[in-house]
Simulated scan of single mutants.
Amino acid sequence: MKPLTARGRIAVVALAFLVLAGGAVGYTLRASRDRQPTSADSGFTLAQGGLYFRDTATGRIARRPLGAGSVGERRATGGPVCDRFYAAGGRALCLRRRAGVPVSAYAVVLDRRLREIRRINLPGIPNRARVSASGRMLSWTMFASGDSYATSAFSTRTSILDLRTGYLIKNMEDIQLTIDGRRRYAPDVNYWGVTFARDDNRFYATVSTGGRTYLVEGDMRKWSARALRSNVECPSLSPDNTRIAFKKKVSDDPRAPWRLHVLDLSTMRERPLAERHSVDDQAAWLDDRTIAYSRGGDIWTVPADGSGAPRLRVPDATSPTTPG
């Protein structure tokens, strides 16, 4: 092997410099992303009430009064940067994607003043976030692979955190699952979209297995779940704990597969809502009569009884929630 000439040595040094510089730029971009605020500006808290949401222009959490009449009404900004957000009972959950490879994120738990109290590193893409009415129980769903429920090429990882005990269930796939009276053991089980009852023990979620989706009712203390019915995705329990808003698959068209419905838990009868466009979201109840959801990058609301018509509530926004 011939020794490098002076020109060759210069070329090698230059190449090494470019590689190191590229790595430094990548690190700088990632560090800059990770330094973005995970807590709110002073004066922006959950105590102010109203409708909180993610402003898509800035990525930060903003709010508006619930009774705001004009869709163009000015929003109050200053919340943390999040990709998914939900708040209740004086606690908030902020899912924030991290830059870099492999894809990863943070689950950031925030107090009433939207100050960080706990942070958990997560693999995957943030997808769903929920907090129980008391603020004790938190759950989030991450896409482990894929980025849409409209195809079969996806896998999810759903976690549950008990803030009172500090106990974290990293992946709920080991829960004892019963479908049609039989225990279900299968490698294709995926859970997503947890929603909690007022007692902080009972919860509902979607499970997918054997090519079908089911609504399951879970018990935290017994760590068990049973399927109640099929074709229910992304359940959201009403404040009075009597009904579930969900998206139902009504078409095999991957561009518009779902329609929002409400299920009465006492009769198991479902009712389609006035929103006829396909909605891929875990809806949020603003109160016992009104459901909010994200569609087309905007927040819409619709009556929970199937009457009326969809109403554009907040443009350029996602993750609607009313902390209470």
Score class of each variant (00 low, 15 high):
103 V>H: 08
220 M>C: 04
265 L>Y: 03
161 L>K: 08
169 I>M: 04
201 N>A: 12
255 R>A: 15
152 S>T: 15
234 C>A: 13
43 G>S: 10
139 S>Q: 05
256 A>R: 09
267 T>H: 10
196 F>I: 03
286 L>P: 08
116 E>Y: 03
48 Q>R: 14
155 S>M: 07
50 G>S: 11
111 D>W: 01
73 E>I: 09
211 G>W: 06
298 D>F: 06
81 V>M: 11
137 M>I: 10
211 G>F: 05
134 S>R: 09
301 T>I: 14
319 S>C: 14
116 E>N: 03
168 L>K: 02
117 I>M: 12
238 S>H: 03
68 A>H: 09
39 S>I: 00
277 H>K: 13
236 S>I: 02
197 A>S: 14
189 V>D: 00
242 T>I: 04
67 G>R: 05
120 I>A: 09
66 L>H: 01
315 P>M: 07
81 V>S: 06
230 S>A: 13
131 V>I: 05
214 Y>G: 00
251 S>H: 00
221 R>W: 10
276 R>G: 01
94 C>Y: 08
250 V>F: 00
4 L>D: 11
92 A>P: 02
174 D>K: 00
12 V>D: 11
27 Y>P: 05
179 I>P: 02
32 S>I: 08
137 M>E: 03
199 D>R: 06
77 T>G: 14
166 G>P: 03
235 P>H: 05
115 R>E: 12
280 D>S: 11
129 A>D: 02
86 Y>L: 04
212 R>H: 13
107 A>E: 05
178 T>S: 10
98 R>E: 14
209 T>V: 15
198 R>F: 01
121 N>W: 09
224 S>K: 01
97 R>Q: 15
292 A>D: 04
286 L>I: 14
116 E>H: 06
114 L>F: 03
106 Y>K: 08
94 C>E: 02
85 F>S: 07
142 M>Y: 06
100 G>R: 05
84 R>G: 10
2 K>E: 12
324 G>T: 12
321 T>F: 00
127 N>H: 14
89 G>H: 07
216 V>S: 00
216 V>H: 04
15 L>V: 15
29 L>C: 07
298 D>K: 09
65 P>L: 01
208 S>R: 07
305 D>A: 09
226 R>K: 12
79 G>A: 06
306 G>N: 08
118 R>G: 13
260 L>R: 02
166 G>L: 06
257 P>T: 05
140 W>I: 02
223 W>G: 06
5 T>P: 10
206 T>R: 03
24 A>V: 13
130 R>H: 14
250 V>T: 04
258 W>V: 08
28 T>F: 13
94 C>L: 08
149 Y>K: 06
129 A>N: 00
142 M>N: 14
39 S>L: 04
243 R>W: 04
206 T>Y: 01
12 V>M: 14
112 R>K: 14
61 I>P: 00
177 L>A: 02
122 L>H: 04
61 I>T: 06
73 E>R: 11
195 T>Y: 09
58 T>Y: 04
55 D>K: 06
94 C>I: 06
189 V>G: 05
25 V>C: 10
40 A>F: 08
263 L>N: 01
164 R>E: 15
112 R>A: 15
146 G>W: 13
73 E>D: 15
167 Y>G: 07
207 V>D: 00
268 M>S: 09
69 G>H: 10
201 N>T: 13
209 T>Q: 08
182 R>E: 14
293 Y>N: 09
290 T>G: 11
234 C>R: 10
312 L>T: 01
258 W>E: 07
